[in-house]
């Protein structure tokens, strides 16, 4: 299924400035794979060998995927995804 993904400012260079893009997948992992296919380089900004990067937040509708099933979280037909880098520092 195709869903909408909201892209944060810092990743918009990959999407030619687009704030909202479409992606396909039945799980978050599949959606991220599809994003990488269409916007090469974006994938490694989101995930590393251990999974979702520590300072990247991804939400399915209003839920932080860390409180769902992480990359295995299921994506439904009317879901939308929001990607937000953490606002953090020292």
């Amino acid at each position: 299924m195709t869903i909408e993904v909201r892209i944060p400012t810092i990743l918009r260079p990959y999407t030619a400035g687009e704030k909202l893009v479409s992606a396909k997948g039945a799980t978050l992992q599949e959606v991220l794979n599809d994003l990488e296919l269409n916007y090469p380089g974006m994938g490694e900004r989101l995930i590393d060998e251990s999974g979702l990067r520590r300072f990247i937040n991804i939400y399915i509708n209003d839920e932080d995927v860390r409180f769902l099933a992480g990359l295995q979280s299921a994506i439904g037909e009317n879901d939308s995804i929001t990607i937000l880098p953490a606002v953090a520092g020292g």
Binding site: T9, N57, Y59, D62, D64, R66, T82, L84, A86, V87, A88, G89, G90
Partner: peptide
């Protein structure tokens, strides 16, 4: 020695700014 916005607060903040056609002009700590 560290700060981090709570992830749910962060989502609410960005949604609200979007709705109001705002951006984070200043981020302070």
């Amino acid at each position: 020695t560290l700060y981090e916005f709570d992830s749910m607060d962060l989502l609410r903040l960005y949604r609200e700014m979007d709705d109001r056609d705002e951006v984070p002009v200043v981020i302070y700590h």
